[in-house]
Write a protein that binds this DNA or RNA. Structure first.
Lengths: 218, 218
DNA sequence: GGCCGTATACTCGCCTACGAGTAATCGGTG
DNA sequence: CACCGATTACTCGTAGGCGAGTATACGGCC
């Protein structure tokens, strides 16, 4: 379903989007991304940037315009987007918007092995996460409000989306914490017993099999 | 903040978790992951699996136990987890649970370049996404309910988390659709005009600069 | 008992990602 | 006006990710 892209790195999408406005050289692209806050804690991977631009060129999605050197500075190659590049940008965007894909967030990976921790420790760590999350959310909300004064909201929807999703995460964590503290979560007692005694609780004995949770119907 | 892991691939986490139960050979690890539905549309990357196991061994987190061949089948190397491996598993899990990290979901990337589409098309695509998302959610809910009858809920929290987050996404998309259809979204008119006439609306003229949205305070 | 489809169990090699290095220029300061 | 740190603008090397291929074994069926 999700088509194979000639250049798969999402950085390529940002590059194409930057070049659609006007031709630029790679470093300027990076500057634009940084200025627009597109990097947000992704401190721009220089290696990837140049690889990605080179690959885009190889596939005819961008083309070198001029390779001028001002003074005796290192040569700067300016790229423009091609028709194929425009088409790819639009098509890729369509796919990203229309096709929901199951991703593998790191927190989910952590949750899936939560059992290796003792329940009480898990509880502490989740509390810690919630605190930090709420801090980040407050900061994000403030930043968003600041931007909203300068720029129409259409330009800020990704940020709003992010906020909404992380908000939901916070809510969910709060719910889980609740079930853990009240002991309402089924299986909690066995989990605790297992970590205290080291023995697999009898209720779980038959789950340790290869077929644990059964084979998914695909 | 987020420590550098000797083996960074999240597949390594799953491998360690599988080996903590008992020693296995790589193919069996894959089988276990598949049986537990850990793969879920990530059709197990064989190349990565063996690279990851080799790297884990190189860093002393797992160790080869036996390298027996039954009959004349290709040699199977069975690995066990080491003390260092256990420590890494626990430490990594702690980090994943306690430290919320800003991720870059593909949908967010799509939203950030949504402007390259005409507003009406964006609307259609978002509707499409919502439909598909709701379908997937229904399927996931059904699968979860099925599992919940066989396994205590502690084992299903990742799935519940995923459900909650995607649910929030659906809600958010519904909200956005609403603002787009009623025309309530500020900037929508300009966006539409821009796509119809091809000219950048005067209100946005000064945004096209390098400093668009201003430089984030870091 | 021979054939074939499916499961088992990897190996190989290319391509990509990205960190760390390099080198010139510019702006400010004492 | 010499020096230093920041900024501009890349280059290079390597480690890791992953698809596609390979080869054997097993079970069922005619």
């Amino acid at each position: 379903m999700a088509k194979r892209r000639p250049v798969g790195n999402l950085l390529a999408l940002a590059v194409l989007a930057a070049l659609v406005e006007r031709p630029r050289h790679p470093y300027e692209i990076a500057a634009v991304l940084r200025a627009r806050g597109k990097d947000q804690d992704m401190p721009i991977k220089w290696g990837s940037l140049y690889t990605v631009v080179a690959n885009l060129e190889r596939h005819g999605l961008v083309a070198a315009v001029e390779s001028a050197r001002q003074g005796r500075r290192p040569e700067r190659t300016v790229y423009r987007i091609t028709e194929a590049g425009r088409a790819e940008l639009v098509d890729w965007t369509r796919e990203l918007v229309a096709v929901p894909e199951r991703e593998q967030p790191r927190f989910e990976a952590g949750l899936s092995v939560l059992g290796v921790l003792a329940p009480d420790e898990a509880l502490d760590l989740l509390r810690l996460r919630l605190d930090r999350l709420e801090g980040q959310l407050a900061a994000q909300r403030a930043a968003l409000a600041g931007h909203a004064r300068e720029v129409p909201r259409v330009f800020l929807i990704e940020a709003e989306y992010d906020l909404a999703v992380r908000q939901a995460e916070a809510t969910w964590v709060r719910g889980l914490l609740d079930e853990l503290t009240t002991g309402a979560l089924p299986g909690l007692a066995e989990w605790r017993a297992w970590h205290e005694t080291g023995a697999v609780p009898p209720e779980w004995a038959d789950l340790a099999d290869l077929t644990e949770r059964g084979t998914e119907p695909h």
